[in-house]
Design a protein around this nucleic acid. Structure first.
Length: 96
RNA sequence: GGAGUUGGCCAGACAGUCGCGGCUGCGUCGCAAGAUGCAGCGGAGGAAAGUCCGGGCUCCACAGGGCAGGACGCCAGGUAACACCUGGGCGGCGAGAGCCGACGGAAAGUGCAACAGAAAGAUACCGCCUAUCAUCACCAGAGGAUACUCUGGUGAAUGAGGUAAGGGUGAAAUGGUGCGGUAAGAGCGCACCGCGCAAGUGGUAACACGAGCGGCAUGGUAAACCCCGUCCGGAGCAAGACCAAAUAGGUAUCCCAUGGCGCGGCCCGCGCUGGAUACGGGUAGGUUGCUCGAGGCGUUUGGCGACAAACGUCCCAGAUGAAUGACUGUCCAAGACAGAACCCGGCUUAUCGGCCAACUCCGCCU
RNA sequence: GGCUGGAUGGCAGAGUGGCUAUGCAGCGGCCUGCAAAGCCGUGUACGCCGGUUCGACUCCGGCUCCAGCCU
């Protein structure tokens, strides 16, 4: 994934993606200790990413979401909006 | 009413919708392993953290002996154990409730103390001193032939000697004050204070009080080596066990049974047995360990207390890319620090606040 | 999760209780027609907070950060 995939990103997240041959999408998260210091913050971010992914209807794509250090100071609402924009952009690219 | 001390407790609440991982029951699929749907039950902390101590558990030998090394260090008790806790002693801080303390030994030995200072453990720089000795100067007396000699006195100039009062240095310099004493001084003597030894008394002990004795010594540093006493084998759940899969006990070089490995400080001992290095090759999956425990809660009893015992009652996370969240609404004191990973007991560190109890001091009223 | 090591100027790197070496880099000067090299001079440091000590980079605690090892 990390060597072959294409990626899109914004201030808070980086999403790497790669089409697969399945009917469902598969999600992986990688929240580094370097970007987010405390484990409770890392868990929170992974939950947010999963929750946001659950609400979207993507299919046939393998995804890995990584974070940037700015996420620590952002509140949940901002992060959800940020992720939604990324999913939509991803969707439009996949259609193309 | 204000200021404070100590101990204990809580860690947003409620409702709705959508989700996550666990266990149990039932259904469906499947030979089975398991997958899946529904329902029910439960689902992070006081620090889960740091990994700083102490244990359990597992493997190494059943954890053995010695050396080395480490830890602890007032006393008694608690405990599975501890560097923790409780009670007490001593010292320090505070007006007090209270708080803090690595709190054994420097007369077993070795070392260290920069700079300054005379000197940093046995010494005397400046200073003080003519009582004593030698020299010198002066005066007086006696002897003698002017020389000179002897005796006595004065001076304190030089040396010897005495001294540790005073000065200055330093983080630290050989008890303090007063009187006597002396050439000057000095525990040299005395009084009081301090210090040391100590019969005895109280206390389990640490320790406290202390008749009496000693004129005063053994300066500091042991988070320097060290001595004394007590304790400690090593590694860690990525320990370890089981199942499945895969593969080649390969090749080369070197060493050698007083050897090598287990055993990771060393020696002994025990067990196993050829080993080391290089090259080449294989594996990276699952199950288990995994939560019932020195367990929680309540009552009674014993104890000042830490805690213990008895009885009753409850079952309270167990994930493995790793589960507790999101959204909406209401309320308030407006929610801090922060996420289990084998399990406990502590310590330390982070932390918005709130509640309860006991106690202290100050002010006012009765 | 468990275990181990480290932190000294801008960089590298010594230092076993008494002033923190040394090299490279920087700055100024000498040298040179101009530079390089060389020579002379110069500034800058013990991760943080406590304790022991007369005195701590060093000894002892506690934090913070950075590396490495074990599946």
């Amino acid at each position: 994934m990390f060597s072959n995939a294409r990626s899109i990103s914004n201030k808070y997240f980086v999403i790497r993606y790669q089409p697969n041959q399945l009917e469902v999408s598969r999600l992986g998260t990688a929240v580094s200790k370097k970007a987010v210091r405390t484990s409770i913050q890392r868990n929170r971010l992974k939950r947010i990413i999963r929750e946001s992914f659950r609400h979207e209807n993507l299919s046939g794509c393998d995804l890995v979401v990584t974070v940037r250090s700015a996420v620590v100071n952002a509140d949940n609402r901002v992060l959800y909006q940020s992720l939604r924009k990324l999913w939509q952009e991803l969707l439009s690219r996949c259609v193309n």
